[in-house]
Nucleic acid binder design. Structure first.
Length: 162
DNA sequence: GAAAAGATTACCT
DNA sequence: GGTAATCTTTTCC
């Protein structure tokens, strides 16, 4: 979850589209809410890959992207601030992936080697980081593993206050 | 092979 | 604030 905080303010670029991350969630080993909780499966195999591997999964009719930090642990990219002149709304995991053009086909991509998908350092440091419970899950709901840039308009609702 | 659950989103009350 | 849409993966018989 150290990485989840460090990613706030970082830039993610996919092809010619880029966003500045303003909201993330950490999923760690032994976390009942994590897809890795019950061991490796066909879907989450990339989440056990090397750090920097992209874990993309489909839920309902939407896809969400994670960045693997350690084997079995990953950071969910929840929202970003559009860079450039994008008339889009990357506020929310599904929307963010749609904006970046990420698909299930990008699952398992190594961000440190792939040229299309890349991570950049922070443009500017978040003024204040808000921490709160994660959203949308049914297990371990109370764990404060959600991180967002305080006051940023692109943070998805409900906005963490602490 | 069939049923249930899910890290979502949008729309209705 | 609550529920439906919608569909893939997982899990159980």
């Amino acid at each position: 979850m150290t990485v989840a905080r460090a990613l706030l303010g970082a830039t993610v670029r996919v092809g010619d589209r880029a966003v500045r991350l303003v909201e993330t969630e950490a999923y760690v080993a032994g976390d009942p809410a994590s897809h890795t909780f019950r061991g490796p499966t066909r879907r989450n195999r990339s989440m056990f890959g090397a750090p920097g591997t992209l874990y993309v999964y489909r839920i309902h009719q939407v896809v969400c992207a994670n960045l693997v930090t350690r084997s079995g642990e990953a950071v969910l990219l929840r929202a970003g601030e559009p860079l450039g002149l994008l008339a889009v709304n990357p506020s929310g995991p599904g929307r963010l992936c749609a904006v970046l053009g990420l698909t299930i086909g990008d699952d398992g991509t190594d961000v440190t080697r792939d040229g299309r998908i890349r991570l950049y350092g922070r443009l500017r440091r978040p003024a204040r980081i808000a921490v709160g419970p994660r959203v949308g899950i049914r297990r371990a709901v109370d764990r404060p593993l959600r991180f967002a840039e305080a006051g940023n308009r692109w943070v998805s609702r409900p906005r963490p206050s602490a």
